[in-house]
C-alpha cells in the first residue's frame, strides 16, 4: 500500500496538524518507507489469533462512588492560555 499526498493531507486534517506542501512531501516519503517496513507483518498469518488489548492480565478495578475532588477551579484554569477566572476561552465556534 502506498500513501499518496492526498492521504497525507487527510491524515494531517484528522490529526489537526496543519502542514505545508513541502512538509507533506517529506512526510509522504517518510511514511512510505516506514509502512513498507511495517508491512512485513503481512508475512504472518494471524487469522486464528486473539488480539492482545491489555498486557495486564487482570480486570478493571471498580472505585466507590464518592466525591473526592473538590472545587479546584483556580488550579484547573491557572495554566490556560487565555485568562478568564471562570471559563476556558477558545475562538468563537459557529455550529
Amino acid at each position: 500500500m502506498t500513501i499518496d499526498l492526498k492521504t497525507v493531507k487527510h491524515i494531517s486534517k484528522l490529526s489537526r496538524i496543519s502542514i505545508d506542501d513541502q512538509k507533506a512531501k517529506k512526510l509522504e516519503k517518510d511514511l512510505n518507507s516506514i509502512f513498507k517496513w511495517i508491512e512485513q507483518l503481512n508475512q504472518l498469518n494471524t487469522d486464528k489469533v486473539e488480539p492482545l488489548t491489555s498486557i495486564a492480565e487482570t480486570t478493571l478495578r471498580l472505585r466507590k462512588d464518592q466525591i473526592e475532588s473538590k472545587n479546584i477551579r483556580e488550579d484547573i484554569l491557572k495554566n490556560s492560555p487565555k485568562d478568564n477566572k471562570d471559563y476556558f476561552v477558545v475562538p468563537k465556534v459557529v455550529e
Binding site: S18, I76, S80, F88, V90, P91, K92, V93
Partner: peptide, 21 residues
C-alpha cells in the same frame, strides 16, 4: 485549550491546527 502552547487562529479548527503544527 486548557494549558500549554496556543497559536492564534481564525477559528477553533484553525487554532487547533496551528497550535499542534
Amino acid at each position: 485549550v486548557k494549558y500549554g502552547f496556543r497559536a492564534d487562529g481564525e477559528n477553533l479548527i484553525d487554532m487547533y491546527e496551528k497550535t499542534r503544527s
